[in-house]
Nucleic acid binder design. Structure first.
Length: 611
RNA sequence: GCCGGCGUAGCUCAGUGGUCAGAGCGGCUGUUUUGUAAACAGCGGGUCGCGGGUUCGAAUCCUGCCGCCGGCUCCA
């Protein structure tokens, strides 16, 4: 069962942000009609990329240009600076030079050339090897165009704005490394990111939004709210869950467990390590070794492996007995903690860690049961996301790239599995996008994708159809005909992982978790010491109404204002303020996290409010 | 892993070659007993990420490592 991250082609732009808690990113206005790719803003950003390239060449004449497209919220240009280091200070110099070139208001001219002319042009210009390679890739039926502004000419499809003077409201944002053609075997280029807008106000707003997004970053909130921490001594990517974060985990697990019991899942528990031979048999060592922690070797005869997935263990449970078609479907569920040696540069707070807990389950089904069971899992996954209040997700069908060697099993088996997923999705009228090459190594999958606060795309839940592992493990059940048959395996995790899910929930809610998830649901604030006793009786009264309520009493010797501020920043759904008046009238003064002071109420009225 | 940036008190940050390294918040102690987003005073708290180097002198400059951040690549 895998979780992963994906930068979806065409949406790979950085700097997307939540405008408000509820407005979906995809509807940020620049993406509305006309389509972004045809909009003037798109051309403006494309031209901004050219302006940047022009300015770079004026400052670094030996730089070699590669590609520089507009992206969701801006643009970039990948440039080969040779041995020269290009950092933030260089970026500032380039931005200054851009303003200079913009103010010169250079007209932008388009011209169309033949292939030979184009080649000659590139050679006479700067002998950019990358541009020659790009030229070779232009299909013969496409026209070849160059755009020129002042001393700068670039091979480019366009379109562009008419003059550099139109590019007024821009800012360069960051420097990053990027491999030529996205292949790590190729040379690493320097990618310059920037953004541009039609108006100063839009640019300003964008920059403000970027700052705002940081405030809802789960790493910031995770610290402020006491959800989790990392320790250098423990190791990178190995999270430590604090008491409040653990409550959220437990609540989520409890919720899902209950739903799974209703749907016929059986909980199982398996160890964290297993013998190397098991992982050889499963194909993990063949296809997934890079993602695994170093093996534990006691001596030549015995090597153990820290599990990167739970599936082989669940398969062994299946195999512990003879199975009949009457037993199927069998659904084994486990909150299984797995370990993956992610590359150091890939770790990202709780969104990508090296040890994480999957809400994993494996369903063993007959071919006849596959469609229904697959749909049942999709239904559960959608149900779970609705309950969590996540709405801005989309679905991706990950299929095999037949060229790649990282997949196990025959073409036929893959064809069947991929067809099964696509057919089920179509029948359920799901809106999905197919992504070739994003399958699990053992089978195709349906993934639920979502963005984080700063616009990065992550995979949450996943449902995977697998004909390969049953074969590798020689799994069987006895059919109605008395003969052995092979079950099909569905791997699935509606959350994906608790770590990533809680990180995303934290960002979606900006830390203000809904009542049922909030680590502390109610905090009682006695105004003075003499009210503490009453506060305790209020807590008892609440617990009588609901034993599971998570209640704290803030009896610190602070002023009321201080206590309110402190607990407000902890985003606790309700504060119950109790002072002399409340003791006299047997009330609690309710303060709602969103609506503020609701005034004094008898306790049972408050209980009714939260029930 | 690769490119770039960053690393000063528990947290947020100031200090960029020259007195014993600073602030706010948090913590502790005392005073205050408080009615809807920060009471007042005092006190603690730092091998300036770690190691090596340059220098009369390094938090500050150079270098190796570790960690974090933004990308890229990989990824079930």
């Amino acid at each position: 069962m895998g979780i992963g991250r994906d930068d979806t082609p065409g949406l790979s732009g950085r700097m997307v942000y939540f405008q408000t808690q509820t407005v979906p990113i995809a509807e940020s206005q620049e993406r509305m009609d006309p389509p972004y790719e045809k909009s003037r803003l798109y051309a403006l950003r494309h031209s901004a990329a050219h302006l940047m390239a022009q300015s770079v060449l004026q400052l670094f004449p030996d730089a070699k240009l590669t590609i520089g497209p507009p992206i969701d919220n801006g643009f970039y240009y990948d440039i080969d600076f040779g041995d020269e280091t290009f950092g933030d200070s260089e970026l500032e110099r380039v931005e200054e030079k851009m303003r200079e070139n913009a103010s010169r208001d250079l007209p932008v001219a388009r011209e169309e050339l033949t292939r030979n002319e184009a080649k000659e042009r590139i050679l006479t210009l700067r002998q950019d090897p990358y541009k020659l390679e790009l030229l070779d890739d232009i299909p013969s039926e496409d026209e070849i165009t160059f755009y020129t502004q002042g001393d700068f000419t670039d091979l480019c499809r366009g379109p562009h704005v008419d003059s550099t003077g139109e590019i007024q409201h821009f800012k360069l944002l960051s420097v990053a490394g990027a491999y030529w053609r996205g292949d790590e075997k190729n040379k690493m280029l320097t990618r310059l990111y920037g953004t541009a807008f039609e108006t100063a106000e839009e640019l300003e707003q964008h920059l403000i939004n970027l700052k705002e997004a940081k405030k809802r970053d789960h790493r910031v909130l995770g610290r402020q709210l006491g959800l989790f921490t990392f320790s250098k001594s423990v190791g990178p990517g190995l999270p430590l869950w604090l008491p409040k974060g653990t409550i959220i985990r437990d609540v989520l697990c409890g919720f899902l467990k209950e739903e799974q019991v209703k749907r016929g899942y059986q909980p199982v528990v398996t160890p964290h390590i297993g013998k190397k031979e098991l992982w050889e048999k499963s194909g993990h060592i063949e296809t997934f070794k890079e993602g695994m922690f170093p093996f534990m070797e006691r001596d030549e005869s015995e090597t153990f492996v820290l599990k990167p997935m739970n599936c082989p263990f669940h398969i062994e449970i299946y195999k512990s007995e003879m199975r009949s078609y009457r037993d199927l479907p069998i659904r084994y569920a486990e909150f299984g903690t797995v370990y993956r040696y992610e590359q150091s540069g890939e770790l990202a707070g709780m969104l990508r860690v090296r040890g994480f807990t999957q809400d994993d389950a494996h369903l063993f089904v007959t071919p006849e049961q596959l469609p229904q069971e697959f749909k049942g899992v999709v239904e559960l996954t959608v149900f779970v996301l609705e309950k969590l209040g996540l709405k801005d997700y989309w679905m991706r069908v990950g299929t095999r790239d037949a060229e790649a060697d990282k997949f196990i099993g025959s073409d036929e088996v893959w064809r069947v599995a991929e067809e099964a997923i696509v057919k089920a999705c179509d029948e359920m009228k799901l809106d999905y996008r197919v992504d070739v090459g994003h399958a699990a190594f053992y089978g195709p999958k349906l993934d639920l994708m979502i963005r984080d606060a700063i616009g990065r795309v992550w995979q949450m839940g996943t449902i995977q159809v697998d004909y390969n592992l049953p074969e590798r493990f020689d799994m069987e059940y006895t059919g109605e005909d008395g003969k052995p048959h092979r079950p099909i395996l569905i791997h699935r995790a509606p959350f994906g992982s608790l770590e990533r899910m809680i990180a995303l929930l934290t960002e979606q809610y900006a830390g203000a978790f809904p009542f049922w998830l909030a680590p502390v649901q109610v905090v009682i604030l006695p105004i003075a010491d003499r009210h503490v006793e009453y506060a305790q009786s209020v807590r008892c009264g609440l617990l009588e109404a609901d034993q599971k309520l998570r209640i704290e009493i803030d009896d610190a010797r602070d002023t009321l204002g201080k206590k309110i501020r402190k607990n407000e920043m902890q985003k606790i759904p309700y504060m119950l303020i109790v002072g002399d008046k409340d003791v006299a009238n047997q009330t609690v003064s309710v303060r709602d996290r969103d609506d503020g002071d609701l005034g004094p109420k008898p306790l049972d009225e408050f209980v009714a409010l939260i029930s």
